[in-house]
Design a protein around this nucleic acid. Structure first.
Lengths: 118, 118
DNA sequence: GATAGTAGTTACATAAATGTTACTATATGA
DNA sequence: TCATATAGTAACATTTATGTAACTACTATC
């Protein structure tokens, strides 16, 4: 294996940090990735999400709006007796797969490491 | 390609969410991944990190302690004229590679998407 | 002895995130 | 008319994260 000589300017480093901060802005915080994980299992109604994720309506509403703004979640109003609203993942949210899988794997492995006592 | 029938209990979903929250606990927030990214470029002294990452000593100190606790960063006191302290990544921090690379890639792509107007 | 550099810490202040409770609006059926 | 269900929103409280400024302890050099 040959060690690549990577272009490594101060600017490129700054960009890397920005990219990571961008990702954290969109998907960081306590709930965003949790909601996405739940929705990967299938669409949910507002109250279902609230129950399934254990998140209060106020925060849920805010988080869903932000996810919608970033094109990750789609909101559908249904013509039901009392109006229901279904939230589902967009196709674009698929682009987050790698991130989610990587974080899932790492979280499991790290927990094992901690439990086994380093 | 065959669609796998994945074991998909409520418990396994809850675990997935926990794993992701674990990862966010260790590596989320405004600075942790930024510091790791900087340190991937090589070890730094305390003040260098403060300057390079644009983070105040108080927060830097706290973040470094947490990273050390989680086995991601190593702290070395050097026998220099005024004592200096070098911070570097541990071997264990390598396990975060996938997460970091995935977040880096996604952040860049998402920024491009936003700039190009969806 | 005074000054300056390194690595922090302390006390204080502010900002951001999250939580709790109660409420609105709409509609259905008892 | 009253109770119930859905999807939120509003007002308020609390907790957590982050920032700022000044300070300590140690040592070397002027």
């Amino acid at each position: 294996m040959i060690k690549q000589s990577v272009q490594h300017t101060e600017a490129s480093c700054k960009k890397a940090r920005l990219a990571i901060q961008d990702t954290l802005d969109v998907v960081g915080g306590k709930w965003k990735l949790v909601l996405i994980t739940v929705l990967r299992d299938g669409k949910r109604k507002f109250n279902e999400l609230s129950r399934d994720a254990g998140i209060s309506p106020r925060i849920l509403s805010k988080e869903l709006q932000e996810l919608e703004t970033n094109g990750l979640v789609h909101r559908t109003v249904c013509n039901t007796k009392p109006v229901t609203v279904e939230y589902s993942l967009t196709d674009y949210s698929e682009t987050l797969s790698e991130v989610i899988v990587a974080m899932h794997k790492w979280g499991m492995a790290h927990r094992d490491k901690i439990i086994s006592g380093h």
